[in-house]
Design a binder for these strands. Structure first.
Lengths: 233, 233
DNA sequence: GTCTATAATATGATAGAC
DNA sequence: GTCTATCATATTATAGAC
């Protein structure tokens, strides 16, 4: 794209030129789609923010819809890979047995939080997912619905760590945990406002501890069983 | 609109005709904006779904943006009113003292869940909020950010019920609770898929108990303090 | 691969008859 | 208040020069 010397170098080396442009577009798209929703971001705004030509999106991805799917795929792959790695490590450390609940929760939670701090790439991944579900083309929604394989692994691991809980309740509480994670990407402005600036997304470790504490406690909540308490009033 | 006899009747009675059309538009807008995002829903699609004329939106609301704000306002008012009512009742029942944590949580949680079951009007309110934040005009976003007054009441009530917790942590855990609620409107399809159909949003009471259990446990989670545990590995 | 110019279409909004 | 017709504009996508 911009640096012509490098371009010539890459071409000479037989490499598929600079794939830089593609990456830059993906980065901008992820951020803008997350911040402003897919439909509301025009290709003009997007390509201008990315510093590339208007036609580049269609050249590299084929269409705006295809770009949305590409940006989702990239984010999902990176996040799921890291989660799976941490879960595997915890299981190995447990010698084939069940890892402590806190470690399972950490494997689920920490990659999402870490990325939100360190990588521009995944900072807004979860927020993007919310929009993709409402906005995107059918294909993107299907991918999203099917993107449960890695969560299934966590469901199984959690079920082993919480043998007294019916499987159904494990699923519900895992689902709630995802909601807690979601809150880190979605409503931080409201939290900042609510707390008068006291609560901020600045200290990675501190936030991680809070989330793990909360989610672990929720998973360990006493389960009363299917009977609903009779009102005394 | 459609029923001419009623229209004439209302006109004869001196009432401002049928305000039905306005309501129908608000209902459709709330649902569609929530499902597909504000920007992706055209006025043509919206008015067709509502069964009203294309020009009706501009006539009754002035613009598409103004419609978004109107639909948000209506939902926020109804939900906050009900939450405040339940919290007040709990406080009165406690005779000026601090209500049990579970009751505070119920006041926060039950109205949102109940509406999601009973009222088409508010069924998708929370999901809509997520989109409004990314999508809407600046005015809508500001309203959203400032819409913390009623949450402030809950923060204070929770702080009294959890006197050992620093105020900052109360805010964080209230924020996480909102994330749990959010999960009921946002990713239910993923939960259904993940659980193989085992988990569904069908039984209001059962879901309410699950959410209250989870959120209460999270609020009651032990608080280790600002010190971060040293890794033993 | 990148860019300009433009085609084809969809959108929000409005004027004006009823 | 409702409807049809239409304007002005913005959008995605593409053709074709470089």
């Amino acid at each position: 794209m911009r640096v012509v010397a490098e371009q010539a170098e890459a071409d000479a080396a037989g490499i598929a030129a600079r794939q830089d442009t593609k990456e830059v577009i993906l980065d901008s798209a992820e951020r803008l789609f997350a911040e402003k929703s897919y439909a509301s971001v025009s290709l003009r705004e997007l390509t201008q923010a990315a510093g590339v030509n208007l036609a580049a999106v269609n050249y590299h991805f084929g269409s705006k819809d295809a770009l949305l799917i590409a940006v989702f795929r990239r984010g999902a792959l990176a996040l799921n890979r890291e989660r799976a790695r941490m879960l595997r490590e915890a299981e190995e450390k447990a010698g084939g047995g069940t890892p402590p609940l806190r470690e399972i929760v950490s494997a689920l939670v920490l990659p999402a939080i870490r990325y939100s701090f360190t990588s521009t790439r995944l900072a807004l991944y979860n927020q993007f997912v919310a929009f993709a579900r409402g906005d995107g083309p059918a294909e993107a929604r299907e991918i999203l619905d099917k993107d449960v394989g890695h969560l299934q692994r966590f469901a199984l691991s959690l079920a082993r760590a919480l043998p007294h809980l019916p499987q159904q309740e494990v699923y519900w509480r895992l689902h709630f945990a995802m909601g807690v994670l979601h809150s880190l990407y979605t409503d931080m402005k409201r939290l900042e406002s609510l707390s008068g600036g006291l609560c901020q997304l600045d200290d990675l470790e501190a936030v991680a501890v809070r989330v793990v504490d909360y989610v672990t406690a929720g998973l360990e909540a006493p389960f009363a069983g299917p009977l609903v308490q009779e009102k005394t009033a």
